[in-house]
Amino acid sequence: MKLNQFVIIGLGRFGSNLGRELVRLGYEVLGVDRDEEKVQELSNVLTHTIVADATEEEVLRSVGARNFDCGVVAIGDDIQASILATILLKELGVKKVVAKAVSDLHGRVLERMGVDRIIYPERDMGVRVAHQLVSPNLLDYIELSKKYTIAELAVPQCWSGKSLEDVDLRGKFGCSIVAINKPQGMIIAPAAKDVLSTEDVMVVIGTNDQIEQCQESFDSGE
Rank of each mutant, 00 (worst) to 15 (best):
L18H: 07
G19P: 00
R20V: 11
R20H: 11
R20S: 05
E21K: 15
E21I: 15
L22K: 11
L22Q: 13
L22R: 14
V23Y: 14
R24L: 15
L25Q: 14
L25E: 15
G26V: 00
Y27S: 13
Y27C: 05
E28Y: 07
V29L: 04
L30R: 09
G31H: 03
V32Y: 10
V32Q: 13
D33Q: 08
D33V: 00
D33S: 07
R34Q: 14
R34G: 14
R34T: 14
D35M: 07
D35G: 06
E36I: 14
E36L: 15
K38P: 03
K38D: 00
V39Y: 05
V39I: 03
E41D: 09
L42F: 03
L42E: 00
L42Q: 09
V45H: 04
L46T: 03
L46W: 05
L46Q: 04
T47E: 10
T47H: 13
H48I: 12
T49E: 03
T49Q: 09
T49L: 06
T49G: 08
T49C: 11
T49H: 06
I50F: 06
I50G: 09
I50T: 07
V51R: 11
V51G: 02
A52H: 04
D53E: 02
A54P: 08
T55N: 10
T55I: 00
T55G: 03
E56N: 15
E56C: 05
E57A: 12
E58S: 15
E58P: 13
E58I: 10
E58H: 12
V59Q: 06
V59P: 05
V59I: 08
V59M: 05
S62T: 11
V63E: 02
G64H: 04
A65P: 14
A65F: 07
N67S: 15
F68K: 04
F68G: 02
D69T: 09
D69Y: 07
C70F: 11
C70D: 11
C70Q: 13
C70R: 08
V73S: 10
V73P: 03
A74D: 01
A74Q: 03
I75L: 15
G76Q: 11
G76V: 00
D77I: 05
D77H: 14
D78S: 00
D78P: 02
D78F: 01
D78R: 11
D78L: 00
I79Q: 14
I79K: 15
Q80W: 06
Q80D: 10
A81F: 01
S82R: 05
L84K: 10
L84A: 10
A85D: 03
A85V: 02
A85W: 02
T86W: 01
T86P: 02
T86M: 01
L88Q: 08
K90V: 00
E91T: 03
L92T: 08
V94W: 06
V94A: 08
V94Q: 09
V94Y: 04
V94K: 14
V94T: 07
V94R: 08
K95N: 13
K95G: 08
K96S: 07
K96F: 12
K96A: 06
V97A: 01
V97F: 01
A99R: 12
K100L: 00
A101P: 07
V102L: 04
S103H: 06
S103F: 02
S103W: 01
D104C: 05
D104K: 10
D104Q: 05
L105R: 15
H106K: 06
H106T: 01
G107Y: 01
R108Q: 14
R108W: 09
V109M: 07
L110C: 09
E111M: 06
R112Q: 14
R112H: 08
R112S: 13
